[in-house]
Write a protein that binds this DNA or RNA. Structure first.
Lengths: 201, 201, 201, 201
DNA sequence: AATGAATGAGGGTTCATTCAT
DNA sequence: GATGAATGAACCCTCATTCAT
């Protein structure tokens, strides 16, 4: 391997290191409380190096967010695009989403925190909103292929399904409950949250 | 009314003014992007005056949050504590929660934004967490008095119910849907999000 | 005098102090080598205070330049606009220009340094260029009322006259010569720099 | 040609390339706004290479300035040292100076910009000042061999003559006038800028 | 000798907080 | 008590210089 190639490989490694450090700092502190110096220290580089790889704090943040979200997005979209009856697809989607969220906590924290912020039209989140919309639309598509009554507002139901998943995961994040299993969430999603009146009770 | 009383009334008015201004600024910009100067301007006072009423930005924020959340909390807890069968209580709870959230948007934005943040153990939110837990516990209590199968994890189900409400409201905030009606949410909560298989299909 | 008036007076004083400090620092070091901290120290205020009065280093610089140049400009334009035969006007102009340049050295240094830079289309100098052009045009107007042969290119001659004055003053700045007297410059301007051939020599 | 010689030739070429790039960048941006990276890019080398040839930005700048100025200096001194009557020498001097300044604009811009700065005892310019003084002294020598009244302060008149040339050239640089011809400047230098009174007017 | 990624001191700017009036 | 100008710590970013390859 020649010098140029080595350098490229090395650079890719440093970039990775920086993004990881940024992930840990941003997910712990949030955007405004995160300091570039701390990211640099955790990445084991000097501040200046950060700026060799990313033109600004904002750009670093956006890149990180986009890469992280995209990774999750790809997995989830894949599951949602798989062939089969809608119920099967939904099961696979649940599995994929929970698996990738469980994989590591910083990503999860950032993901949840920022997707929520994204809904308030934050400044950093244009592209992320697009991905999020795309995901909800796809999910809505699958839901609409189910039997009624979801067909009425599939996009809305998609948002609610996502909300349920997010809530369940957050509960786990706080240590109050174990990380949700796909089968448990499936149960929750296929039963009323509030049971119907027992008619002849 | 004597001088001392008048003064007190006046002070209360200024305090109110400041909190309102703070609400509008914080809900628009979030904690870090909010500037004390802007709050002062919107309140029609000088910056120094803010510090006569609140010892710091953080304290102002916490007070605001706590007052806002408490107000919502009181209404919701009232509904949850009312007598009657659990289904009735839940209906009243839904109505109360939606009504107060609809009342004004800044409170809503702040509420959603910050309650979510609160789950990530933000620095400003110890007392709010306590209220939130209290609310979820109370809600769980009502849910547990329903027929099974909720009785298994009522606290968890309470969180999920709250998550559904929050999600629905956020969808409305973004202008994608009308503000949710209690009856619609009731429908959603009492039916499976994903309909069960048609048995003999 | 009430509080508000006192404050205004005080502010004007601080502003003056800052501009003076800025003048001394900028004239000693030039724009890029000048540090805001040093300006603040010389003005006897904190860095933050500079930003209460001027939004940025650049703005401070431009204001300083513009105020300084305007002051000189006003005096010189006044002399150039006075009534009388052109030769009288030119004498008065010479006196005014030399007097104001002699008044204090920092202004002079800044003036010369920056007017020269202005000719290279510096970034800070749009308004100054306008003043400079206005001045040269006025001077050209006076020159054109003289007997030929200046009438050919009065604007060019105006530039040359200004160049002569600037050169003479700079020589003095360097301590090589005393500050030029109006009468000496008048001599220089009304005689050839290189004497004509003695015809019958 | 052996290896060592070839290397030397190559190095000389690189050095030349760097100085040319530096000339273009410095003359466009001025010392402080010029970046080493841009010089390297224009020279077609890496930043590190600059430091193989010049120990610092300052040194590169000084070398560039000195080489550029020296080149002009040599030509002008040659003309000033040529034999003949002073008027002839001055004509040749004018021709030489204008020709070399016209040759390329970057040199000209740098020359004017920096020689002016040099007068303010800039940090980069000790050696250049020496050359400048030498040139003015030589010019003064020629002027002093003319008939009176220049003999009184020939060094001062030399500075004024140089100032006139500089002013005329700058006017051309700005595109307001064509580049001055030697004969035109000669006219200007041998006539009063402000014509004497018509005696019997 | 050439490379170019890494370095980190330095400087501009912000804004919560203070305090003299 | 109210004011708002002053403060200065904190933080982002630049870029000349270094040095391992």
């Amino acid at each position: 391997m020649n010098l140029r190639s080595k350098r490229k490989v090395w650079q890719e490694e440093v970039r990775r290191e920086i993004l990881e450090a940024a992930l840990s700092v941003f997910s712990e502190r949030g955007y405004h409380r995160a300091r570039m110096l701390e990211i640099a220290e955790r990445a084991g580089v000097a501040v200046g190096t950060l700026y060799q790889y990313f033109p600004s704090k904002k750009a670093l943040y956006e890149t990180l967010l986009l890469e992280t979200v995209s990774r999750i997005h790809r997995r989830v979209m894949e599951a949602l695009s798989s062939p089969g009856p809608p119920r099967e697809i939904l099961r696979r989607f649940l599995e994929a989403k929970l698996e990738i969220l469980r994989e590591n906590e910083p990503v999860l924290r950032l993901h949840l925190r920022e997707l929520w912020e994204a809904r308030f039209r934050g400044v950093h989140t244009e592209k992320i909103r697009v991905l999020f919309e795309e995901y909800l639309d796809r999910l809505a598509g699958v839901l609409s292929r189910l039997a009624s009554p979801l067909s009425a507002h599939p996009r809305f139901y998609a948002a609610l399904v996502d909300g349920i998943i997010a809530t369940a995961v957050v509960e786990a994040l706080e240590g109050r409950r174990p990380f949700p299993e796909p089968r448990d969430l499936w149960e929750i999603l296929t039963q009323p949250l509030i049971p119907r009146e027992n008619r002849h009770a």
